Amino acid sequence: MTEARKGILAMVGACTIWGLSPLYYKLLVAVPPGEVLSHRTLWSLAFFGIVLALQGRLAQVPRLLSGRRALIVVLAAVAISANWFMFILSIQIDRAVEASLGYYIFPLVAVMLGVIAFGERLRPAQGMAVALAATAVALLTWGLGVTPWISLFLAGTFGIYGLMKKRLDAGPVVSVTAEVLVLSPLATLWLAGIHDGLWSEGRPGGFFGHDLHLSLLLAFSGVLTGGPLILFSYAARRVNMTTVGLIQYLNPTLQFLCATLVFREPFTPWHLGAFALIWTALAIYSAEALRQDRAARRAAASAATSGISVT
């Protein structure tokens, strides 16, 4: 099996785990989302710490927590924790359809953030895709009488997280370890507050250690977080980013199927119209990405040929 094929299989594996994760978080519906997030943070730290220790890379983490990079890590940590919390909450309150929509529109939000943050120029096809996505959000807002704020929040926080990651010169596993390390004191305080009865988020808290089934599920959240990221990192080193971007649509697609077929959440004609516009926008965006990738490969091949002929 070629390295590229191994990379594609790893990417499919990562996106499948991410896409089916609503099924896992639905099993934790009795546990308040803040408590789930706290456990996810701490168990992820344990998982990543073990992985990096085995790889001999644990010393790389403190380097990210000094100087200017420390602030970037903190901002990235805030963005990803907000994203994780909202995703967990959306599953618990039966809004998984909106969550899947958020991850569908994320690539288009990322394009707009690139324009704002880096002064990147929109190509006509990209502009059309972004316009269709905006129309989809407007259609859903008008039809349902409420803005799909969960979708926008998830896409926005994940987009901001991506911007922060671009400014960090570190691998994904090392950087995420630094992020959950920053968040771990807050997670510990939150769980301590639950244990002491300071807050309960409207429901009984402190499930870990009192319910074996839920305790195991909470502990497994570290593996569920870290495993796909390691697969993604493996794939990113072996597959071009255009292919990675296309395979990533498997994630929201599986989330969407979980929401509609398993959770039986409402899917109105307004949802259908909005999703149709989003899918069209992503088709245009993907076609443009493929065109750019092929053009870049042709240019590289032409340059290589020219170099050979000259020598």
Rank of each mutant, 00 (worst) to 15 (best):
243 T>F: 05
261 L>M: 14
239 V>S: 04
238 R>K: 14
248 Q>N: 10
229 L>I: 12
228 P>H: 03
250 L>W: 09
259 A>W: 00
244 V>T: 13
256 F>Y: 09
256 F>M: 15
243 T>W: 05
251 N>A: 15
240 N>L: 13
250 L>V: 04
226 G>L: 05
230 I>F: 03
246 L>G: 03
254 L>S: 07
246 L>H: 06
248 Q>Y: 13
238 R>C: 10
260 T>Q: 11
255 Q>L: 13
231 L>S: 03
227 G>S: 04
233 S>D: 14
245 G>W: 00
242 T>L: 06
258 C>P: 02
247 I>A: 00
231 L>A: 07
249 Y>Q: 09
238 R>N: 10
253 T>E: 11
227 G>H: 03
231 L>H: 02
244 V>I: 15
251 N>D: 15
229 L>M: 09
235 A>I: 06
236 A>G: 01
256 F>G: 08
247 I>Y: 01
246 L>W: 07
242 T>F: 02
233 S>V: 08
241 M>G: 03
261 L>Q: 11
244 V>E: 06
248 Q>L: 11
248 Q>I: 08
245 G>P: 12
245 G>V: 10
233 S>E: 12
237 R>M: 09
255 Q>F: 11
239 V>N: 04
230 I>Q: 02
239 V>W: 04
230 I>Y: 01
237 R>E: 11
251 N>L: 11
257 L>W: 10
260 T>Y: 02
251 N>V: 13
247 I>T: 04
233 S>I: 03
258 C>N: 10
228 P>Q: 01
244 V>Y: 01
